[in-house]
Design a binder for these strands. Structure first.
Lengths: 169, 169
DNA sequence: CACAATTAAGTTGTGCACAACTCAATGACC
DNA sequence: GGTCATTGAGTTGTGCACAACTTAATTGTG
């Protein structure tokens, strides 16, 4: 009942060379490279959820705070460039950070289209408590630093390749 | 104005050995290992969105279809085990697949708590068109097969480690 | 200068992820 | 056999991601 043998009725496969894999296997492989990434990302998210609970931050909010701690007051647009996010995601997120009293927004005087996001005192103070977060995360992975670096490099290459492959982006 | 030099006023760092990295660097490193993963995952998602548009599927819906194509009729619970998702996510998602006419749901007779999800004819037929998806994705990454495999292995290890680190999960 | 194209932020709507919950069916134990 | 804990599906509420849109400011070009 469970293992239904795949019916041979597939699309034409007369054209391609297909070195070692057939159509069948491909559908499985696929369910893994993208899926492995997806799973790992969500697993990370779950861990961050626990670790960041004390700080009252979600993971994406934490990312925005990281940008601000590193670069200081930053226009929304630039935060988006750093994080690969658009205003549709950032506007409400930053609004929540504002309600939480961690950041303030101010429209630029030179260019009134732009809004600068800066840290409040509470936001600045939170950094001290956030410093221990990365260590806890890194410890949880159980990975060597070198391996993390390596993984990082590959992922960057992958992201770049994928971005390049998407038309409009 | 842009590069604010980090003020030295941080938390105590007298205890730990810290081989090569200081607190400062850690906060940056962090913003990358997790973030690299997050970015790659979202980049993948963006590519899938384009590729799957023809099929009228989102990426998570595609994952569910993959499970069904591979295993045939499957209880919701088991789909969740395969995909690392709970009923809170799956119930509405599967309902949308049902509305689209790709799957049907039927309450089990042996155990009336359980709901079996099976493919309709349209759902089965869609497989033929989905077969080309993995190739297009793989091509877009520009990665060698071996490298994909390697990355996959590392990500699985990472996910396992992260899951183990989260208390309740 | 005027006017079209571009740009930045924000809004709206859809779908996913997940916590916390309800409800009904099942299983375990006395 | 009756009671209670557990299990599977589903609902509700919050937040994120992103497409498509609106609005206002800026820039480019005739």
């Amino acid at each position: 009942m469970t293992r239904k043998p795949c019916p041979g009725t597939l699309v034409s496969m007369s054209e391609r060379p297909t070195p070692t894999l057939r159509e069948e296997d491909f559908l499985r492989l696929d369910g893994q490279i993208c899926f492995a990434l997806n799973s790992a990302s969500r697993a990370f998210n779950g861990l961050y959820r626990v670790v960041l609970k004390d700080l009252g931050l979600t993971y994406p909010q934490y990312l925005v705070m990281l940008v601000l701690w590193e670069h200081g007051t930053t226009p929304v647009k630039e935060i988006g460039t750093h994080l690969r996010l658009d205003s549709g995601t950032l506007s409400p997120l930053i609004k929540r950070l504002e309600v939480a009293g961690l950041v303030h927004r101010e429209r630029s005087t030179e260019d009134e289209r732009s809004v600068h996001v800066g840290l409040t005192e509470a936001g600045t103070a939170l950094r001290a408590r956030a410093v221990e977060v990365p260590r806890r995360i890194a410890a949880a992975t159980g990975f060597e630093l070198a391996e993390i670096r390596d993984l990082q490099t590959r992922l960057h290459r992958l992201t770049a390749a994928l971005d390049a492959a998407v038309p409009q982006a």
